[in-house]
Amino acid sequence: MIVAEVVRSGFVESVHHGIVALTVGKSFGDVDSPFFPRSSNKPLQTVGLLNAGLVPREEADLALMSGSHDGEPFHIERVRAMLAAAGLGPEALRCPADLPLGEAARNAWLRGGGEAEPILMNCSGKHAGMLATCVVNGWPLESYLEVGHPLQKALADAVSRLAGEPIAAFGVDGCGAPIFAISPMGLARAFQRLVEAEPGTPERRVADAMRAHPALVAGTGTEDTVLMTAIPGLLVKKGADGVAAAALPGLGAVALKISDGATRARVPVLLEALRRLGAETPEIPEVVLGGGRPVGEVRAVW
């Protein structure tokens, strides 16, 4: 199944195959075999943090814990504040040292003479939330990334419950934290449960925080932030290797994986999937540049 094609100067130069799960009785490709959703799992893990007793300083912190931030100053300041509220400093983070994910933030940091630091890593918000939850429960801090740690057991339970299926495999994500394999359909079900949960529940708190503070989920001009700003009520979280999950209350949810990991095919396919749910979506073209000017596009062909 072809789900997207790259057209340059009228010539189809490449195609991208993918798997798409829709919670409206439709699917494309194998939506029942497990895979690693990568960062699309983050909102589900944040629900697990709340279930484990986390009390955030403010609801906006839940958006940052659930996101993959660009490392802009307002992201980093909030991570520092989250850690400080738990009586911790950046040295407690066990994610790898990195530069800001966003190009503008990275260039500004390097111009200022900055170097890679764990707090700049795009998952530092998630790690700050994990550490704060450990503090609340008196759990060990040094080993919070081990799959057998009480924290990670609680997060795995939350992901499994929301997905409606057992965890198929455990892996290690790019940030060093455990990642839990579920099916694309399970991921779509989980996102639908987030947006359709009762107000005030952990699920709904996470969904509401992300939608109210989309810039904390990603960053200025970044995919998730742009989509949630443009489509009222949308919850969306991308993941590495061409993964995305999204949901709209009353319409359903979608989870997708571009098989070759192509990120530029992700938005056109996601927007088409949302249209198939019945959503009104804006035109957000994925432009192919040549010599600095538009010469083609990536489009969903299904």
Rank of each mutant, 00 (worst) to 15 (best):
M1T: 14
I2W: 12
V12T: 14
S14C: 08
G18W: 01
I19K: 06
V20A: 05
L22M: 08
K26H: 07
F35R: 11
N41W: 00
P43D: 01
L44G: 03
V47R: 13
V47G: 09
L50R: 09
S68Q: 05
I76V: 15
R80D: 02
A85K: 13
R94H: 06
D98H: 13
D98T: 13
L99V: 06
P100E: 11
L101M: 13
E103L: 14
W109T: 12
W109K: 15
E117C: 06
H127R: 10
G129L: 14
T133M: 08
C134M: 10
C134W: 01
G138C: 12
L141H: 08
E142T: 12
L145T: 09
L145Y: 07
E146Y: 02
E146Q: 15
V147S: 15
G148N: 15
H149R: 13
P150V: 02
Q152F: 03
A158C: 12
L162T: 08
G164W: 05
G164I: 11
F170C: 12
F170N: 09
G171T: 07
V172G: 10
S183I: 09
S183W: 00
L194R: 01
L194T: 13
E196K: 13
A207Q: 06
A207H: 08
A218Y: 02
D224L: 03
V226E: 14
V236T: 11
K238G: 10
A240K: 00
A240P: 00
A245Y: 11
A247Q: 04
G250K: 14
L256K: 03
T263M: 14
R266D: 02
P268N: 14
V269Q: 02
L271I: 06
L274K: 03
G278N: 06
A279P: 00
A279Y: 00
P282A: 10
V288L: 11
L289V: 05
G290N: 01
G291L: 08
V298Y: 10
